[in-house]
Amino acid sequence: MILAVSGGKGGVGKSTVSLNLARELDAVVVDADLATPDLPSGRGPDLHDVLAGRATPTDAVERIGSVLVLPCGRTLAGARASDLATLRRTVETLDRQYGRVVVDCPAGLARDVGVQLHSADVAVLVTMPERAALLDAYRTRHLAHEVGTPIASVVLNRGTRPQHEALAERVEETFGTPTTILERRAAVAAANARGKPVRDVEPDSPAVDVLSTLARSVERCDRRRLERADPTPE
């Protein structure tokens, strides 16, 4: 299963959700934000090297803490030399090898995001309770629909209960997708600052339950997709 974590706007928490979902799903997380990567950088070859044909996807995967990461390079030259056309093959190779891949998409709605959404089996949209972020998420939903990728869930990041519950319901209605509120919490911020999933820093935080539930809904969405593709009962 290839999961794209997208959302349009920058700074809404796509990388945070990607890293944590990778932990909950036991997946490889690919930092596909070619120019402004956010996930921890590795020591070996990175996604720039893979997309330029200098390394194989498997060689570039490394374990950072508890999560397998395909890190992204930090140079502009590397970003420019990356061939987007090979991204799909890269994530598919990882999917075959590891079974589950989370792709952390960049902000914006340019072709890089389009290719990543198209390469994915399911998508999760991350947004925040503010107008610009919600609009961008809605545009991303439209693009995902156009390239044929179902959306498993919308994450309303840094929302608060109970005041954003009504908003979450409206998002759910408008997007036609289950919506999860990931509340602003010290545990999430602390884990983020250390580049680690919340489960590894504060396993008792309620955020871990939210992320775990989110991971299960992604799995359900993927199962539905597979059942539709192959309707024969077991």
Partner: peptide, 28 residues
């Protein structure tokens, strides 16, 4: 409208301008 057309119609991606200031300050 095929997926290929949808993808070809999207803007070409390019690094956002703020990465220049970011790489200059060396914060990343």
């Amino acid at each position: 409208t095929t997926t290929r057309e949808v993808l070809a119609d999207l803007d070409d991606w390019s690094p956002p301008t703020d990465v220049f200031s970011r790489s200059r300050s060396g914060s990343r």
